[in-house]
Design a protein around this nucleic acid. Structure first.
Length: 575
DNA sequence: GCCGTTTTCGGCCCGACTGTTTTCAGTCG
């Protein structure tokens, strides 16, 4: 079993947790956590980078020591530091940190006074009323722990972005109706458009922050108020989502938005810049001494720090600050740049709408083209098309195009199955008649990394294949990506003139943000496609665009920002 | 543990809220 970047990040987080519980230097703990986030966000596997002879300590935030430990973990070794920590602190104890209200200090106290090392022992002690007598604890904390345990907390639950949106929209409507609320926005990872969000962070501007808090607390979906103060409240909604609201005066709104949008690493980096300039940055503004020199908008704060305004999607401390300082931030792709969709199904296979309805919906969105990519025959459960059925569909598409007019074109295409050995599921002669060919893996997810990579390489050897759809097969919160050598695949794609998809289904978002960035670095253009199975799913485009933006993609990096003739010229058959 | 056209040692972002405290530690983001 290869050691993935996620595995390495988890080990680094475990070291950080154990060090934290031991009472180590907090900056040392932070270094491990920061390294975990860096490794997690790398587009390429650490194992590959090491095999290529790259120095991990070239990454900002990773020095010689951490580079050595990461290499050891990647090689499947147990770092001596971790072994040592596990001798001193029972390793299972880190699970207690996931319980709200329990941090490293209290967890350590629980261990030292009552010998508690796991959730079951904690629950037993709390039920027996033994926590309240520990110094620093009391009856209220004991009750809160019991309540958290009864809610089954301890396992952080992250919502997919689309689910979060459905919670956010009515909540924002409620807030914006509040008297004296001048602006309201969702910040946090939601605003950065991460594929999943933990909790929701709201920021409102009001001359009377306390009244704004009171209005927020009147929202009828609130199940429990966990905290409330004059400028901040924290609640849990009926559906279990935690929502934090921060209310500030308009002069601080930009500063508060900046602070609560994060990421934390981005915020810390900005504050360091402020300190270097003899300034102080907090959620109320940017200050020289006691005088506020910026705060009403994010833009004026960035400007005062000598930075171009940084779009929320880039705020991960992954190079955006240097780019903003040097005036080389990307001009990110937007939904308005998209001219068409290159992956959609109809009721000929597993879609829900007719060819005509899908065409109509795409045209109504202002698109110039829509590729119809039904499944091929191998996918029997989706009633995949064989050569004859496909020929009939192609003829129907040509006929429909003759009647549609208005600068809109349906493209005859297919989502052809990539078989276990890398061959495509339809004969070349059939594929040659199509406008473009999208290929995808739908079976044999369990192949070794080597075999899965070879499979896709072989598929790309077929010159009819234009785009690899949902390249890693991952399903967010449900199925990990199958192991692939993505760097090798992207380099091969560039050589062959093949392209990769950013599948915009909110459950997929595949390529991910960091893989988008890798594709751009290697020079492979991507198609942002919805894989719509009905007209309404054409609207998923914006989720794909969001991921592409997180991956630093500009309009030129995206195939379907182009008018049809330019698009066709970029495909292999046009070359 | 990281990092440095001020530094290779001595810094490291900043504040709100809670509960348990008689003035503040712990947690959280």
């Amino acid at each position: 079993m290869p050691v993935t970047n996620a595995d390495i990040a988890a080990e680094l987080d475990r070291i950080a947790d154990l060090l934290d519980i031991e009472g180590a230097n907090p900056f040392r703990v932070r270094a491990y956590r920061r390294a975990a986030r860096i490794v997690e966000g790398l587009p390429r596997s650490v194992a590959d980078m090491l095999a290529a002879g790259e120095d991990l300590d070239a990454l900002p935030g990773i020095g010689k020591d951490l580079a050595g430990k990461i290499a050891a973990i990647a090689a499947g070794q147990h770092p001596p530091l971790l072994a040592e920590l596990e001798r001193e602190v029972p390793p299972g104890i880190t699970a207690l940190l996931a319980i709200p209200g329990l941090g490293p200090k209290r967890v350590r106290t629980l261990y030292e006074t009552l010998g508690i090392t796991d959730v079951a022992a904690l629950a037993a002690a709390a039920r027996a009323g033994r926590l309240r007598s520990i110094p620093g604890f009391g009856p209220v904390i004991e009750a809160k722990i019991l309540e958290a345990l009864s809610r089954g907390e301890g396992q952080p639950r992250r919502l997919k972005l689309r689910a979060a949106e459905q919670i956010v929209e009515p909540l924002l409507r409620h807030l914006r109706q509040g008297r004296g609320i001048l602006a309201a926005e969702v910040a946090g990872s939601y605003r950065r458009r991460r594929e999943t969000v933990g909790d929701l962070d709201l920021v409102v501007a009001s001359e009377t922050p306390e009244a704004a808090i009171a209005h927020f607390l009147g929202y009828d979906e609130i199940a429990q108020v966990a905290e409330r103060g004059p400028t901040r409240a924290r609640v849990v909604l009926r559906n279990g989502t935690q929502v934090d609201l921060r209310a500030v005066e308009p002069a601080s709104y930009g500063a508060a938005l900046l602070y609560f949008t994060g990421s934390q690493a981005h915020d810390i980096a900005l504050r360091r810049i402020a300190v270097e300039k003899g300034l102080k940055l907090n959620e109320y503004g940017l200050f020289r001494g006691r005088r506020r020199i910026a705060g009403r908008t994010e833009e004026e704060i960035y400007a005062a720090l000598g930075l171009a305004p940084i779009p929320p999607e880039l705020r991960e401390d992954l190079g955006e600050i240097a780019a903003a300082r040097e005036g080389r931030l990307p001009r990110l792709v937007t939904a308005a740049d998209i001219r068409g969709d290159l992956h959609a199904h109809t009721d000929a296979t597993d879609g829900r709408a007719s060819l005509k309805d899908m065409a109509q919906a795409a045209r109504d969105r202002g698109y110039a083209y829509l590729a119809i990519t039904d499944h091929s025959r191998r996918l029997t459960m989706a009633h995949g098309l064989g050569p004859k059925e496909l020929a009939r569909q192609v003829a129907a598409i040509r006929r429909l195009n003759a009647t549609l007019g208005g600068g809109f074109t349906l493209l005859a295409s297919i989502e052809v199955d990539i078989l276990e050995d890398g061959r495509l599921d339809l004969p070349d002669a059939v594929l040659a008649d199509l406008d473009l060919v999208v290929g995808a893996i739908h079976s044999h997810f369990g192949l070794s990394r080597e075999k899965q990579t070879e499979r896709l390489l072989r598929a790309m050897d077929n010159r009819h294949l234009d785009i690899i759809a949902h390249p890693t097969g991952r399903m967010i919160n449900a199925r990990p990506p199958y192991p692939l050598d993505m760097e090798r695949l992207l380099r091969a794609a560039r050589e062959r003139g093949c392209h990769f998809e950013v599948n915009a289904q909110p459950d997929r978002l595949d390529l991910s943000d960091s893989l988008c960035r890798l594709a751009k670095e290697i020079g492979v253009k991507v198609a942002i496609s919805t894989d719509a199975h009905g007209p309404e799913e054409l609207a998923f485009m914006r989720y794909g665009v969001d991921q592409a933006r997180r991956g630093w993609l500009e309009p030129d990096d995206v195939l379907n920002t182009r008018p049809l003739p330019e698009l066709m010229a970029l495909l292999r058959r046009g070359a």
